[in-house]
Simulated assay, not measured.
Amino acid sequence: MSVKKKLKTSAMIASIAAEGQPTTAAPFGHALVEAAQGNERIVGMTADLGKYTDLHVFAQQFPDRYYQMGMAEQLLMSAGAGMAREGFVPFVTTYSVFASRRAYDFICMAIAEERLNVKIVSALPGLTTGYGPSHQATEDIAIFRGMPNLTIIDPCDALDIEQATPAIADFDGPVYMRLLRGKVPRVLDRFDDYQFEIGKAKRLMSGGDALIIASGLMTMRAIEAADELAKQGVKVSVLHCPTIKPLDNATIIEEVRRHAGKPVFVAENHTVVGGLGEAVAGVLIREQVMANFHQIGLPDEFLDAGALPTLHDRYGISTREVVRKVEGVLAA
């Protein structure tokens, strides 16, 4: 009797890359090693999650500059603050849920209030794990957007991470960066002139029928959706906003005005409460810019556990669902 071999998958470290899509393994870990080779002040610190935040790559190269703090996220943030006070540039890694929920007050009082040069790099942002509410950081941006002095970065792909890592290392001040880890898709390579810059949004695609403003993995979805819609003759612009705070208000306003009367969508791997969508809406309201405004994001609820493709379809952040949302608005 033959025994069928079971295929094993992990909801914790599942890749968001589509089958056959180009990827890079551990882009953050390798980019941090490269940055640290030219800056001996960079140190790596984690709360028992070196392997799962790709910091193990740094640890292998610089074992004397790597600090394993155990399962103690509050201690991790306080120690990172102490390192920064001594002139180091600490990159502290954990999961987004633990940074935003468990260590919030320590980040606020020990790091942000003092404007200390700590880089908080956190894996499993939004809906990038199927392990359910205990590990799905669907509200981390909402939590951190209200914290003064904190820069918030939400990179799209491996290229974005490779460019953002040295940029935040050179930046003077506290940073929170959402991390896509493991085998990370490469989607921005097709845009030859793309260059990550803190505080800058970048137009990736131009079209006159609609505008999608996006960050993080939803920029990948927006690009894929624009490609699919183009096959139907629908031309969609895509504006990538890798910096959530400070937001590039001027570019956002310029792009919305350029699409006057056309649908404007904000797509984010985050709850529709308190994230990029509401940040963009606030800018438009304050500047009295009229827009046919729509949000694409996660619902204001605790999400289910399960396989990522199923969950992305269920909660409206798959490419198919983005296409469906744009088509529905254009047809209305």
Rank of each mutant, 00 (worst) to 15 (best):
M147K: 03
L116P: 01
T129E: 06
G126D: 13
T128C: 06
G173S: 04
L211T: 03
E224M: 09
A142M: 14
V184A: 02
I168F: 00
G199A: 07
Y176M: 01
R190H: 14
L247V: 13
N149R: 06
A226F: 10
E113I: 12
E113S: 12
E114I: 03
A169I: 01
R186N: 15
L150P: 10
S237E: 05
V238Q: 10
P148N: 09
V175A: 08
M218K: 07
L116C: 07
E139V: 14
H240I: 13
N117Y: 03
I212F: 07
R145G: 08
I120D: 08
K235R: 15
V118C: 11
D157A: 08
L124Y: 14
A137S: 14
Q136M: 00
A222H: 06
A137Y: 15
S237I: 10
D209R: 03
L150Q: 04
M177G: 12
A123V: 09
R186A: 04
D193I: 12
K245E: 05
I141K: 04
K245A: 03
P166F: 04
T151L: 10
E113Q: 11
G130Q: 02
T138Y: 08
A169T: 05
A167Y: 03
I111H: 03
Y194E: 13
L124R: 13
I213T: 02
R221C: 06
V234D: 01
L150W: 05
D154C: 14
P242H: 11
R221D: 01
G132I: 01
R221S: 12
A164F: 05
K245N: 14
A137W: 13
N149W: 08
V118L: 09
V234I: 15
R178T: 05
A210E: 05
Q163P: 00
G173F: 06
L180K: 09
P174Y: 01
F144T: 10
P174S: 05
H135N: 05
L124K: 09
D170V: 03
A123H: 12
G208S: 11
I223W: 04
R190V: 15
E197T: 15
P174K: 00
